[in-house]
Amino acid sequence: MKEVTAVNTEQSPVSAPLPRIADDPASGLNARVHHTKGSSARKESRSPFWLPIGFGLVFLMIWQLKGFHTLFRLELYQLPIPSSIAKAIQANSDLLWSYSLYTGAEMIGGCLIGSAIGLFAAVAASFGPQAGKGAITLLAALNAVPIVALAPVMNNWFGDGVASKIAIVSIMTMATMAVSAYKGLRSVEPAYLELMHAYAAGRFTIFLKLRFRLALPTIFTALKINMATGIIGAIVGEFFISSRGLGFLLSDQIKLGNMPIAWSCIVIAAVLGIVLYYCIQLIERLAVPWHVAQRKRQ
């Protein structure tokens, strides 16, 4: 494309100038139609957040006023009320803080290791799908393995410290990542592959410029799921043989019948999970802005 000036040695059969899109009414209209479609399909989601907050408050209120106790004929030592859980959290804040860090470290460590292994497996399988698909299917079976079966085995292997819980979380998260990432890496429309092929792009370039980018949204979804399973894995792992952590405290206090502290473990674990979930979501927003924006329009 050296020069745009037309070489008019031949007479142009058509005298229309190169149109600019700005004065192209058809395209402009199309663009607008697209926009309205996006926003009207789902009603404007100015989420009236008082609804869920109100629901939560009412729920807590009924709980606090022993509504559930009356309804299900429960005693206070069975189901503590929110205020006593809050008091228990306050009274044991130092212990809970250090145990959350401990459990959080197991979880994050396990998630990162497991997701990395899973991603690696998916990438390897995507380069050789003939044999790779079978391996991924086998890995998917790991998803069906109840965690509790893993916990004692990992304790045997890695002792009762952090390592065994990291191992449990790794195994649990590995499969999810491998399966989702593989799906993402292989779900390329043929036309895109033909396009890359027409540009004589090598397998590695296709992976880098096309497959990996296409798989990013699914990889992040898997990471989010893994954060949730990671919490469960770490806590169930601590149920077994452990001397520290939220899961240990939970099972220990239940045996002692100290329900407010047991409940505070659950609350803290939930907060931990939600915080980590939103961390991943933040990273996702930065890493795949095109996907997040698109999702918003749907």
Partner: peptide, 28 residues
């Protein structure tokens, strides 16, 4: 309205170690 009310809790519940409730439930 129901969706708006419940969905944040459903997403949050994915993060809650629901399994942790098992011993408490059995205790009750």
């Amino acid at each position: 309205a129901v969706e708006l009310t419940l969905s944040p809790y459903m997403i949050a519940s994915q993060m809650v170690p629901i399994i942790g409730l098992a011993p408490i439930l059995y205790g009750i």
